[in-house]
Design a protein around this nucleic acid. Structure first.
Length: 478
DNA sequence: TTTTGAGTTGTTCGA
DNA sequence: GTCGAACAACTCAAA
């Protein structure tokens, strides 16, 4: 009789290297069933958005290929994770399940329930730290509370045990004699078909563990010394663009942390800034863990009285990149086309939705959730609340980005705007950020007719700014 | 318990 | 063009 297998349940840790659950499963010496479950059914979970599904398809394909090279397979199933696990256990006679912990509230609940149920059945269930550098419950203030301000949180992380050195991919992953049935990835319909809007995504990204490692290396080989400043310029390739790879766990914090340390020892100057960006991701997860309604409710409850507007035309204009503010529109179109938006532009576009249009941050959160390839519940909700001013350690309410000035400051030559808003590319730099102020003669030469080719601003900046300040005035002290 | 200093990313205005 | 102050008040974290 052959040995009973163990299950390695892959979730958002789609890699072989530094995967503690996989290493533990392989370390048993038993056959390992590598399982991925597409779970759209567990209640309370945020159903994965369209761009994320595109990424997932490619990441699973890459993982399956990598496992195949080791004579193993990726078993694909769809359904409620608890039921699917039961099925696979029944079919295979597996006696243990290993996974890496996740931190979204509904996932925590689900995993707790599953672990208890497995143990009730006399099976082994083990969860590992694979997705964060610091467990959210280990970083505490002097009085034992969770942190609510970033700077002391960062300090506490840097003083804590650093993320472990990454594990190598396991040498031998036991191969089952019998394979549980697997569904066909194509049958899951994760890729868009009618229409196929993923062309820009394909051009922009290489999902998978190898693509993630390449991305990290090319980031580190770039102008790292200029990271602290250069990261603000959306036409420059200075940011890491690791966020989707991190979200799907194609690369781990441990791996990044170690490479940062090496680069720093080699004299890279701005690396500390990048490390703190990684810790921002930790902070978002820390907040979500301790405040699980962060995605749904204002963290500062006085924002419950904020006079949000409802305006579906304005929301659509924002989503489609037709607000009349080139920097905002460029960002929204980059997002639609590539599943990504540069960090600086995310702040500008988010500030515009919330402060200039006075639309609830949850509209922005929902749109980003569906369109970003790096959509991540913790980062998304913490960041939207940060911009709104309702979040932890949030931007003060009077900090209202001027979309014209931000364009002039961070895209002075208009390279970014011309790439994404080509209909105004003929305008000279001087008028590119505010086309409605260009003289008729300039517009004519540039072959731009306002309203026909490009909209006039849907709100007037000074008036919108005033309106936002008044709106915040309304909840002051409440 | 009380006190103290500080708090990712900005804008505008007037000197 | 450059600079500093105002924009508020509050909450957080540690001493």
């Amino acid at each position: 009789m052959s040995q009973s297998p163990v299950i390695c349940w892959f979730r958002r840790d789609l890699r072989l290297a530094d995967n503690p659950a996989l290493t533990a499963a392989a370390g048993t010496g038993r056959p390992v069933i590598c399982l991925y479950v597409l779970d759209d059914e567990t209640p309370g979970e945020w159903r994965m958005g369209g761009a994320s599904r595109w990424w997932l398809h490619n990441a699973l394909e890459a993982l399956a290929t990598d496992l195949h090279k080791r004579n193993n397979r990726l078993i694909l199933r769809r359904g409620r994770a608890d039921e699917v696990l039961d099925d696979v256990i029944d079919e295979s006679g597996a006696e243990a399940v290993y996974w890496n912990r996740l931190y979204d509230p509904a996932e925590i609940e689900r995993d707790k329930r599953i672990k208890a149920a497995l143990k009730d059945r006399g099976l082994m269930a083990e969860s590992c730290r694979g997705n964060l550098g610091f467990e959210p419950w280990t970083i505490r203030t002097g009085s034992g509370d969770p942190y609510k301000v970033f700077s002391p949180f960062l300090k506490a992380c840097l003083a804590a045990d650093p993320p472990a050195a990454p594990l190598p991919a396991p040498e031998g992953i036991g191969v089952p004699g019998d394979w549980p049935a697997s569904e066909d990835l194509d049958s899951w319909g994760l890729l868009p078909t009618k229409p196929d809007w993923a062309g820009g995504l394909r051009d922009s990204w290489t999902p998978g563990e190898a693509g993630a490692a390449d991305r990290l290396e090319s980031f580190l080989a770039g102008d790292l010394d200029d990271y602290a400043k250069g990261r603000n310029y959306p036409d420059r390739d200075v940011t890491s663009r690791l966020s989707p790879h991190l979200h799907f766990g194609e690369i781990s914090v441990n791996q990044i942390w170690q490479r940062i340390d090496f680069a720093e020892k080699d004299g890279a100057k701005s690396v500390g800034k990048f490390r703190s960006e990684v810790v921002w991701r930790e902070f978002s997860h820390h907040l979500l863990f301790h405040f699980p309604d962060l995605p749904e409710n204002n963290w500062r409850r006085k924002f419950d009285d904020f006079p949000w507007r409802e305006d579906s035309d304005a929301l659509t204009a924002w989503q489609k990149g037709r607000t009349g503010y080139p920097m905002v529109d460029a960002g929204m179109r980059e997002l639609w086309h590539t599943g990504y938006m540069h960090n600086r532009v995310r702040m500008i576009a988010a500030s515009f939705l919330i402060k200039h249009l006075l639309l609830h941050w949850r509209h922005g959160e929902d749109w980003f959730w569906d369109t970003l390839v790096d959509a991540d519940l913790a980062n998304n909700s913490a960041s939207w609340q940060w911009v709104a001013g309702s979040g932890a350690d949030a931007a003060p309410y009077f900090r209202i980005f001027n979309p014209i000035k931000q364009g002039q400051d961070y895209d002075p030559k208009g390279v970014y705007i011309r790439r994404w808003v080509p209909e105004i590319a003929g305008l000279p730099d001087k008028h590119l950020h505010a086309p409605w102020e260009a003289p008729a003669e300039v517009l004519k030469v540039a072959r731009v007719e306002l309203d026909r080719d490009y909209p006039r601003p849907i709100v007037d900046h000074p008036a919108a700014r005033r309106r936002a300040l008044d709106a915040f005035e309304a909840i002051k002290g409440s």
